[in-house]
Structures are given as structure tokens and as C-alpha cells.
Simulated scan of single mutants.
Amino acid sequence: MTQTTVQPTILLIPGHWLGAWAWDDVRASLESAGARAVAMTLPGLDPDDPQRAARTLDDQVVAILDALARNGVSAGEPAIVVAHSGANLPVTLVLDRHPELVRRMVWVDSGPVAAGSAFAPDLPQDVRDLPLPPFDVLAQQASLEGLSSEALDRFRARAVPEPGPVLRQTVELGDDARTRIPTSLVCCSIPSAQVLDLAREGHPMFAEVANLEHLDVVDLPTGHWPMWSRARELAEVIRSAASRMR
């Protein structure tokens, strides 16, 4: 990968139902440590966008590339990209199409997806979007450990339904260079030892992890939303990852 002495841009990308606001505490901690941190809202998750429910993964890829370009990222000055949860599909596409723009990838309770993946391929075509489910239902899918009542209230108040096209679209990949990007897995709701075992076993959720050539794993035990439950510690993990050349 290209090396640079310039402080790299750290681009923070939130998962489903979330906007840039979800990273506020992490971004503030990174900036207080002197890092160049930028958070973005993916297309389809801006509540003021009248066409948001029609946005696609391709729209999200374009937006990520635009965010990188606006912040001076290039092949000569690649970024640290941090992706949480369901941001893994558009980010995997970015890594496949433009691996030269990413100096290090940091997956937060997430990971790269394999070719042919879709988040919800069987979601009926007439489902326009998918709202944040009740928390008792959500807790069966992802750990809410560490979230205060205030954090849950904010989550509920600010969550934006996930666009149907984003959930249904299949990821098509073609450049193995993405597997050579130095990568950090921040394991929160599932311990790293279990994640690596599942990757070796070819579990669909983690199979692509086994293909990564330069991988570090970090355990940050908490629930699926560490940007709220352990924001300061997560910021330090990201800052440390950003300082590595490999």
C-alpha cells in the first residue's frame, strides 16, 4: 500500500438506520487527539431526502467516493475507512472498485462481504423501506449491551428506515486487491476468537475475513453499537489502527 507522512483522513461510516450523528462522540475523541476525522450519512438515511427510500448501494458507493474526494483523499494520500455493521456492503464495493484509496480498513462489529451477498435478498419488492424494529426484536438480532436508556431513546428518535433497494441489492465483486488492504477487525458483540473460527469454517457472514492478507483483530467487549457504549475506547482503537502502516 502507498505510504504517506500526511495525517490520514479517517472516514466514519455508520450502519443501518444511522446518520453521521451516530459517530459524534467518537469523532470528538479522535479530533481531540489530533486526528482528521469525518463522519458521513449514506444516501437513503437522510430524513430530509424525499427520494431516500429509492436509494441504492451504488448511490452509497458514489457518496463514499465523493466524501473521500472532498477530504483530499487520493491514491497518494489514502484514507482510513471505518465501517460499522450494515455499512459493510457499500464499503466492500468501494474497496473492490477503488482499493488504492484506502490505506487501512477498520470494521466495527462488522466485516467485508463476499461476492453475491445481499442483506435481505428476499425482502418483497413492495417493501419500500425497513424501519428500526422494536428493541426487544432488535435485541434478538444484535446485542444492545452497554446502551443507556438515553442512548436508546436517541436511537429511536433519530433512526431512519433503511431503503429497500439497499437491502435487496446483490454485491458484485471483481478485484482481489481489496483483500490486500491492511485491515483491523474490532470485535464487540462476538469475540475475535469466535469470529476467526467462523471465518475458517466458511460461515457466510465471515467467510471473506479468511481471505484478508493483512489482518489485526481487537476485542472491545460490548454490544453492537460501541460508538455509544464505549466511544472513548473505540476512538483509541481507531486512532491506533490509523497509526499503523500495515
Rank of each mutant, 00 (worst) to 15 (best):
V81W: 08
W107R: 09
Q7E: 15
M227L: 12
T5P: 03
R128G: 00
H203L: 01
L220K: 07
A69P: 00
G202M: 02
L132N: 01
V217D: 09
P226M: 06
P121D: 07
E213P: 00
A67W: 02
L196I: 10
E31T: 15
P133E: 00
P121E: 12
A139V: 01
V171P: 10
M227Q: 15
N88I: 10
I80M: 02
A151E: 04
R180W: 04
T222H: 05
V38R: 08
R103P: 04
H84L: 12
S29D: 14
R178G: 00
V166Q: 10
R244G: 05
P99H: 05
P165A: 11
L167A: 13
P226N: 06
S243V: 01
A210E: 07
L138S: 03
A231S: 12
A207G: 01
P78E: 07
P14G: 09
G44E: 13
A210S: 13
W17I: 09
L42V: 04
A118E: 06
A231Q: 09
W225N: 05
A151T: 02
L173M: 08
T183V: 09
L130Y: 13
L220G: 05
T2D: 07
H203A: 13
V137I: 11
L123Q: 08
S229F: 05
A79D: 02
T222K: 05
V108W: 09
M227T: 02
R178V: 00
S143D: 12
L101A: 02
H84K: 03
N71K: 04
P47T: 11
V160E: 09
E236F: 08
L30R: 05
P47Q: 13
S184I: 06
Q7P: 04
A207N: 03
L132D: 00
H84N: 13
L185M: 10
F155T: 01
P134I: 00
A75D: 15
A120F: 14
V108C: 04
E150P: 00
L57G: 14
P133I: 00
G116D: 11
T9W: 04
R168Y: 05
S29E: 15
C187V: 05
G76L: 06
D24M: 13
M227E: 08
L12F: 14
L95D: 01
V166C: 11
G164F: 12
L18R: 14
L65T: 09
L196S: 06
A67M: 02
I238Q: 09
A75G: 14
L45F: 14
P191R: 07
V209Y: 07
V81K: 02
W17H: 14
I10H: 01
M245S: 13
I64T: 06
T4C: 04
A79T: 07
